[in-house]
Design a protein around this nucleic acid. Structure first.
Length: 264
DNA sequence: ATCGGTACCTGCACGC
DNA sequence: TGCGTGCAGGTACCGA
């Protein structure tokens, strides 16, 4: 579900929690905790105050006063909800000194971790696509020898891009998902950077894409799904040329593209 | 160091 | 109505 624009929207909707204190934490699914002991993790969080809530790619990093971090990842179906009723797939409930935050995740691909130091898995992420310069992006891209769709999904290359926005950016840039990165001309690599930034910025402004179950912490859906030009539009006409949008697999992931507008 | 494939989970849409 | 199949925004891990 959540890629950079969705996670950004969630983080913005969590802004009221900054400065709040975690009175109690309760965990119901050990899988989400990645093997950590639920009781011990709850004990480490109880009484801690939230200093900041920031996004790194698709990760949500909550800094705790006095040191340490609560790290959240929504996986495919994760939701963070404020003041909602616990449900079948509610795996964590954080009771705050004002309000209640819960973590729901039907597929349980999400994660909740507590770290003493800045988490290594966040530190090894690539740059934010909205922060890296076009020149640096193009240079790094052309140094690699893989297909461009797979590289956009590689979180150590740029962080936060997932299947929706990779397909949408490649369409806007006129680049075929199987194009080899090492052979992309400089101007096309620069254009990909520009289109990636454009689509991410538009999606953030629209509150993300709600395909099936994504909502922000206040339960609001995103609007950007109506602006998708290729993602999950197989068989429908290309908005530019009318050719039927096609689907193919790149590294086991569906890729949607216009066979006429997007060149290798 | 980088790949392709697989695994992890539940829910839904679809065809029969 | 029910059953099997394929598919879904994610990352991690395996061996080649």
């Amino acid at each position: 579900m959540p890629e950079l624009p969705e996670v950004e929207t969630v983080v913005r909707s969590l802004a009221p929690l900054v400065g709040r204190r975690i009175v109690n934490a309760e965990f119901r699914a050990a899988r989400i905790l990645r093997g950590a002991d639920p009781e011990r993790m709850a004990a480490r969080l109880a009484g801690r105050r939230i200093d900041s809530i920031r996004r790194y790619g698709k990760f949500i990093l909550i800094s705790l006063r006095g040191g340490g971090y609560l790290l959240l990842h929504l996986g495919m179906t994760g939701r963070l909800l404020l003041g909602a009723a616990p449900a079948k797939h509610t795996h964590a409930i954080f009771t705050l000194d004002r309000g209640v935050l819960q973590f729901d995740d039907s597929r349980q691909f999400g994660a909740i971790e507590v770290h003493e130091d800045f988490p290594a898995r966040v530190a090894r992420l690539g740059p934010e696509p909205l922060e890296i310069s076009a020149e640096d992006f193009a240079r790094a891209l052309r140094l690699r020898r893989t297909c461009v769709k797979a590289l956009l999904l590689d979180q150590t290359f740029v962080r936060g891009v997932g299947n929706i926005y990779a397909d949408e950016a490649l369409f806007r840039a006129g680049i075929h998902p199987l194009a080899r990165t090492g052979r992309l001309r400089q101007d096309r690599a620069l254009r990909l950077h520009l289109m990636l930034a454009e689509v991410l910025t538009e999606a953030i402004a629209a509150g993300g894409s709600s395909i099936s179950d994504y909502v922000d912490a206040d339960g609001r859906q995103g609007l950007f799904q109506v602006s998708h030009r290729v993602y999950q539009r197989s068989g429908e006409p290309c908005v530019n040329c009318g050719t039927a949008i096609r689907r193919l697999l790149v590294g086991q992931r569906s890729s949607h593209f216009c066979p006429r507008c997007q060149k290798r």
